[in-house]
Design a protein around this nucleic acid. Sequence first.
DNA 1: CAGCTGACAGATATTGAAATCTGTCAGCTG
DNA 2: CAGCTGACAGATTTCAATATCTGTCAGCTG
Lengths: 194, 194
Amino acid sequence: MPPSTETLTAERILEATEEVLRRHGPAKATVVDVARALGVSHGSVYRHFRTKAALREAVTKRWLDRTTGMLAGVAEADRDPEARLREWLAALFEAKRRKAGDDPELFATYTVLTGENEAVVEHLTELTDQLTRVVQDGIDAGTFTVTAPATTARALFQATALFHDPGYAGEWEKPGAEEEFTALLDLLVRGLKA
Amino acid sequence: MPPSTETLTAERILEATEEVLRRHGPAKATVVDVARALGVSHGSVYRHFRTKAALREAVTKRWLDRTTGMLAGVAEADRDPEARLREWLAALFEAKRRKAGDDPELFATYTVLTGENEAVVEHLTELTDQLTRVVQDGIDAGTFTVTAPATTARALFQATALFHDPGYAGEWEKPGAEEEFTALLDLLVRGLKA
DNA sequence: CAGCTGACAGATATTGAAATCTGTCAGCTG
DNA sequence: CAGCTGACAGATTTCAATATCTGTCAGCTG
């Protein structure tokens, strides 16, 4: 609507794309819609993003990076490793649950987007790397008695998939979910400390 | 094709339905197809199953019960609880992986069917009940030091979702899958024995 | 008369023609 | 001339007409 006199930047296109996705959903959001929202021709959008897929990937990466950044803070906090591990996994669960609960349609939109992207692979790698660092610290501190931090971190991440994989979003608001998460976390921490 | 002279039974209808599902897939398999395969009118099928959904549910239940029965044998074997637990989870993973690998289309068909049914809830309950018995035996034998067998069994089942939930079937044939499964199982068993 | 048939109404799926979208590019504009 | 436009070809989506399916039931058949 606002034809705007500002220069057309990748950043402005990404913002407009998010808005169009929010309004129309992943199936109906078109590059033409994005151009219209910016008051430019769709050819201009293709000057900044080679394909529609590249544009969607960039928006997805942006969204995933917000979570990654938030969790990095929790992972690096200067506390004892067990508390940090518990806090990190709880923060991941809580962040996902909040997003899914607050705006289910937008969450569904991003679930579709992450499903069609390769960007999500890097994201998962980054998250398990953060977890690996926490596990390593726990080993160094003598709290955890496991030997392979990277393998263990992957196992922890996979074991808690039910509480962060978007495919299970429907389970997150059920009554016993919090208790089940705690029970699982307790079992895993027992395993780490042996 | 064979109009058959035998009586029309629920069992024969279920077999024909499985065959039609195998041939046409879940989206295109119709009650008319099933009737045609049996050489009867579709009205006759409705004499045995009130709705198409009921028919599909019966076929699904049948399929799920095969796995449940197989695992019951593993769960009841007279061995030490830790070995039984490992064997049970490995058998579950192996059974799913084999089904998905041998006939991906049929597996996809049943994945759709289980997704639309309530029958799957009972199935999951039955499986966690089997696991609970193994955990209980482990506690009784003094091998496992956890306290709540049912809660722990649910945690174990959820933690291994990546290796039995059809949604992750694509991961099962990847190179490191077996090692990741073992790593996770080791961590969980450590937790049980504390 | 128990069990099956086939016609029927309303719901759902298929189809193909028309509309829209993606990605390109020659040329316009400031 | 750097950046934008708008027309275009081919791919994809939409939409409405048509066909098929689901579930019922009155009546046929052995």
